[in-house]
Design a binder for these strands. Structure first.
Length: 209
DNA sequence: GAGTAGATCCTCT
DNA sequence: GAGGATCTACTCA
């Protein structure tokens, strides 16, 4: 069995996975899961090694703290959807909406270890060689996996976009938390340990704290 | 090796 | 009209 056949045979996470009300738990459980995009039959996959949780309207670091607007509307919808937005006019950021309708929880995917379709990722990013910068950091993931704001609102159980579980788990002692990156403006909320990552993994972004 | 500017556009005030 | 859940390249050392 090739790797490709294996990942095709993997279990998609059911939508019920995203509908639970504990976004921190979901963010942590996503570590080790496999993100798959399959736009126009260009199959790319990678293992998630870094996430950040954004918890509800009260979270000052979250876009949803400004209320339900045209942009944040999808965060308020039922979980299991993609929230893709443009930042700094340059980067497409991919988030997973969680929780039930009316509660704007989301998980930002910040670090991924590529598994399949690295040739496609290299073409999309314009990089020459395969190294950790390919899918390190949310902006790079957006490019490598071909995300675009037009994909905002897509359900995560389609054949174009889903997250799979192949049974792999990182050892518990390697799972670490830290404050979130790039949200210093959020005051007290910037100090919360809502970031989850795999210690020592080279696809984890940001500085070691 | 460290620090900083520029890219570039959508959303909300 | 300002600024952002970022990255890269370029400067200076």
């Amino acid at each position: 069995m090739t790797i490709h056949e294996k990942t095709l045979a993997m279990q998609k996470l059911p939508l019920s996975f995203y509908l639970r009300n504990d976004v921190l738990k979901i963010a942590k459980e996503l570590l080790g899961k496999i993100l798959v995009t399959n736009w126009n039959n260009e199959y790319t996959s990678g293992r998630i090694v870094e996430t950040e949780a954004y918890a509800g309207e009260t979270d000052k670091a979250s876009h949803a703290s400004k209320g339900r607007t045209a942009r944040t509307d999808v965060m308020f919808k039922e979980g299991g959807r993609a929230y893709v937005y443009l930042i700094y006019g340059v980067h497409q950021m991919f988030n997973i909406v969680t929780n039930k309708e009316g509660i704007p929880d989301a998980v930002l995917i910040r670090g991924i270890e590529p598994i399949e379709g690295t040739d496609i990722m290299l073409r999309r990013t314009g990089k020459k060689k395969l190294d950790e910068t390919l899918t390190k950091g949310p902006g790079n993931i957006g490019r490598a996996f071909g995300f675009h704001t037009s994909q905002c609102g897509l359900l995560l159980n389609s054949d174009e976009l889903f997250i799979a579980d192949d049974g792999f788990k990182f050892p518990k002692e390697l799972i670490t938390t830290s404050p979130r990156i790039g949200v210093d403006y959020a005051g007290k909320h910037a100090e919360l340990h809502y970031r989850f990552f795999v210690k020592g993994n080279k696809y984890v972004s940001g500085k070691v704290r």
